[in-house]
Structures are given as C-alpha cells and as structure tokens.
Amino acid sequence: MYCKLEILKLKHIFKIYGEKVQHCALKDINLSIEKGEFVGIMGPSGSGKTTLLNVISTIDPPSSGEVLINGENPYKLDNSKLAFFRRKKLGFVFQDFNLIDTLTIGENIVLPLTLDGAKVSTIDKKLKEVASRLNIESILEKRTYEVSGGQAQRAAIARAIIHSPLLLLADEPTGNLDSKAAKDVMELFESINREVGVTTVMVTHDPMSASYCHRVIFIKDGQFFNEIHRGESRRKFYQQIIDVLSLLGGEASDFSTVRL
C-alpha cells in the first residue's frame, strides 16, 4: 500500500512585517508536502516567496500559524536544539551560493559534518561520494573565487545534501546562472530527488527551472493562488506554468521568450 508520509506541513501561516506601518507578507498559507516530493514555489516579485521559504527554513518565525517538519515544530525548540535540527534535517541552497571564502570548496562541502563532530574517515567517505555524484572532484581543493558560478552552485548543493537531510530548501538556486548552467543544476536537483529521495522545496522565478518540479505552487500578494502538477511531459508542464504566470499578470511576457 502507498503510505502517505508528510514531511512538511504549514497551517494558517501569517507573516506581518513592520511595527508602525504593518505589511502582511503572508496570509493564511496552508501547505502539505510529502516525502520525496519536489515542489516549486512561484509568484510575482514581492509576493512573499522568500518570506515563505524563510519561514520554512526555521530562520524567520511566522507571526501566527504552525510549521511542522517531520511532525515537529522547529520554532518550539530551544536555540541549541534548533541548531541540531538544522544540522541534521535541513539542507540549504541560496541564489548567491553563500560559500565561505576562507575555505576550499571541499571544506565548504563537509562543513555540516564538521559541525556535527563526525569522524574524519566518515567525512572523507561522504565527501568522495557526493563529489563524484555531482561531478566536482576536480575542484575540491580550489578556493571559492577560483570556480565558476555553476561549479559554486554545485558545491553548495553538495554541502546541502552531504548529511542526507530530510528537507532540501532552495531560494532561486538558478537565479545567478546562465541558462546552460541553470539547466545542469536543475538536472542535478532532479536526479538527487529521484535517486536519493530528498524532499525538495524550491523558490524560483524561472519557468524552465520550475518545470523540473513535480508540483508548482503559485502565490500572489502573500496568498495561495494556484497549484499545478506535472504530468508526463516537462514541455507541457512548462507551458502550463507560463499560462498560470500570465494569469497572475504582467510578468509572463518576461518568460515567454525563454526557450526550453
């Protein structure tokens, strides 16, 4: 029997910014993501995508509502437990890579294990595995300024998955890459999701990137707008995404020129 395992659940999430002039960035967001899913979040600029991802990432508490990751509310944990939680269960990929300049690529990748006090033999073994999967063995000794954007993003992905997290979170991971590098990175996400089974949530502007997801959720003005599921064809899914974006207004024309 197919067993539905819920990895992420959001219940009635609100997020309000500002003290005097209040601005409601998220309004009553409900979401449920199952194990192994690959979910995209899209919406116009300022619609609250980053805010939503930050709320899920345990770094920006919601004003009200509940976040459950693997059945646990991270905002109820104390500081050090929360740190352990992030270290064990979450992986992050950012638009601007966020690699640490003082470390080599290899050292950046093993950071989550280092922080966890893993044995050197374990660290080396895992690094080897992940580096060969992502095809970045040749740059492990390089420093962050010596590699291309695509390579840096692969390293960031390697860092995000080396500790086999429960949930992989990405905010516009292809935003700083050209279309070729973006395609490589998205194929990587897809293969990691398929082969390792990491549940992935990704914010993106780019319909091409979004078309790799199983499901895309659209938000507008901080509210849930629509949700579409991918069928067999990625090309068809891409077209569907463009259609919804044009419904959302304005922005679709920006994307329609993008070729698959």
Binding site: S57, N79, S80, A83, R86, R87, F92, P112, L115
Partner: peptide
Amino acid sequence: SKEFGILMILGMTKKQ
C-alpha cells in the same frame, strides 16, 4: 556577519 549567518544556518550552535 554573513559568514556567521551561513554557519548558523548550516546548524552551528551558539556555543560552537
């Protein structure tokens, strides 16, 4: 501060 932010999000505790 950015470096520390990255480390914290990767699960570094305050103590560490």
